[in-house]
Design a protein around this nucleic acid. Structure first.
Lengths: 176, 176
DNA sequence: CAATTTATGTCAGCACTGTTGACATAAATT
DNA sequence: AATTTATGTCAACAGTGCTGACATAAATTG
């Protein structure tokens, strides 16, 4: 009742559009694209009793084998309590192993097991196929623009992190 | 214990790369890009006690004023119980109003109030700015490729839905 | 008109994944 | 020897999905 102290607010019957100075097309495309992009692995994960959080951990442990817990937290930007829950399940189920850090014995280096590697690839495969299909007709130039765009969408201070992942061409910000 | 019936699984020390036949770069870029893309409105929403689900409802009600509850469910692909929770809050707080359907009086047409319109634009503004910045240096051709790519990432049967949103150029699948 | 279907609302409970706060341990650093 | 750091763990809570069940009013159908 608090919000209707006077007359009820009138409904606005016109749609917001690009005329409002906002890029609604790409906003919506990102939402729909990401939703469907994640739906493929989600289905597979459900069969294992895992969720999207497990996927992320598995993914980055496979992409950066030997990374420490602290490093993983820094990539994912979540709290250690959030990570602990899913990491423990992945370790208990034999998808990831922890190895004591060689220099600093407090650290836990994370590695995939063969089982973990297999699952990671199985989860990535449909996503990669979807990307391939979406790139149909695009050449190297177009692909570069798309990558450049996506990378530029990331917070600037985190872009360096992306460059440290294997097989990613670093610092492609203007031209070749 | 079940997973260690024999020797413990050995850690794999090599990273997965594009050599595994999978497009890890774009997979990761989509994750990071989407995460940061949503972080801007998330901060604003938190001030209102709202979450990302409220944003989505607000967004599509503003983009398609007068759409019914059933239509909104079809766009969002969630259950009515999930929608009910956030929709009720948005209505109670005066961001959205319901109007009885003129033909079918069972239907509830959803419209933004001026307050709802204002919030929607405020949430979209930082996202649009981020997109603008990410498109820096891109011309119309490059932008078209990026939109084409994102649209092609969406499940085919849902692409028509996107075309029905205001101001979206439909069916740009091969050239103009 | 009576029966059925449809559009919407609502209650209850559960799962997943994020959060904060507090506390514990072992190892490194000072 | 004291402090800091890396990690783990317990507990509680929030947001947002889900399923299942049931209720109401309005439209449709036979």
């Amino acid at each position: 009742m608090a919000q209707r102290s006077g007359a009820a607010a009138q409904p606005i019957r016109t749609a917001v559009t690009a005329d409002d100075g906002i890029d609604f097309s790409i906003i919506e495309l990102l939402y729909f694209a990401y939703r469907d992009f994640t739906s493929d692995p989600d289905q597979i994960l459900a069969e294992y009793g895992f969720g999207r959080a497990h996927h992320r951990v598995l993914h980055f442990v496979n992409r950066m084998p030997g990374l420490t817990v602290a490093e993983l937290l820094d990539v994912l930007k979540i709290t250690k309590q959030s990570l602990a829950r899913v990491l423990k399940q992945l370790i208990d189920a034999g998808y990831i192993v922890q190895v004591q850090g060689p220099r600093d014995r407090r650290q836990r280096e994370l590695y995939p097991t063969p089982k973990g590697r297999t699952l990671t690839l199985a989860l990535a495969r449909p996503q990669s196929r979807r990307i391939d299909a979406a790139l149909e007709g695009a050449g190297e130039t177009e692909r570069a623009w798309i990558e450049r765009f996506l990378k530029a969408m990331v917070n600037p201070e985190l872009r360096a992190q992306i460059d440290h992942l294997p097989g990613n061409t670093p610092g492609k910000d203007h031209g070749e």
